[in-house]
Design a protein around this nucleic acid. Structure first.
Lengths: 144, 144
DNA sequence: GTAACTGCAAATGCTTTGCACCCCT
DNA sequence: AGGGGTGCAAAGCATTTGCAGTTAC
């Protein structure tokens, strides 16, 4: 569990026998460079367009799907809001601003024991999602 | 923070000057009686149809929206999966089976200090979402 | 009586899919 | 050379919206 870098992602794709195309490079760049913003498909698409002359939204979606299916990045799925993607695979809490949509990481002081859960319930944990919703400091300062 | 019962929900709606219609009663019943299953709109719709002669999916959605906007129940939103609703407002962890979609509650041994977060980041927490994904005991026993 | 509620159908918006063409390796 | 990758347009699907008719209070 770590913060994935460009080389990590490319290396892993290569190892799986997948192709490194200009589109994928641009998408991975956009993903990694905007990591702390937890970008959505649209932002990644717009950023990727700057580097690769030809990219389509479908390709962005396909690549993000491939990466998260392989466990190389984490997809954060929402209902009304665009999904967001995270190259930080370490276990952490996400603080999500309900006004501006900003998502920032917060390291947990202590994590919940997954073995404890399995022992008590038989449930085997494969991945976690911990989100706190509210308002970020910037939005609280802003009027309205 | 508590587990909402039928009377709680109806009382709160009344206090807000909202109408108690047969549809809403049926929806609230379905919600409360299936609380531990964390029902989705479709399940609630099908259950509600048994009690109220006339209900539509739109009404189910409208009512669930009203209840969650008022903070009387908690909406759990997903992307590819139907949203699920929870009348248990206490802070707890949800264990979500990726195979059968079952959602069960798990009480937390200790919760993360929200004041700590505000002090360190300026972010004010209004509601939380803590989910662990994986496979439930039943699905693990089952072949395939 | 009247504001709120309901049901229907159409619209929304993000994401996926089908398919012909393309290009990494 | 060949199978994965790409772009486009169309389809999917849960949820919302517009609106005319209905109903709880």
């Amino acid at each position: 569990m770590k913060i994935m870098k460009k080389e990590d992602l490319i290396g892993q794709l290569r190892e799986k026998g997948l192709k490194i195309t200009p589109q994928r490079l641009a998408i991975i760049d956009a993903l990694v460079e905007n990591r702390t913003r937890h970008p959505g498909a649209t932002l990644i698409y717009n950023e990727a367009k700057k580097k690769a002359k030809r990219v389509s939204l479908s390709t962005v979606y396909a690549t993000l799907k491939e990466l998260s299916a392989s466990g190389l990045i984490k997809a954060m799925e929402f209902d009304r809001m665009e999904n967001r993607y995270d190259a930080n695979l370490s276990e952490h809490l996400n603080l999500i601003c309900k006004r501006c949509g900003a998502i920032v990481d917060f390291n947990l002081p202590a994590t919940i024991e997954q073995k404890d859960i399995t022992r008590k319930t038989g449930f085997v944990v494969t991945d976690t999602r911990m989100e706190y919703y509210g308002y970020c400091g910037d939005c609280l300062k802003r009027p309205e």
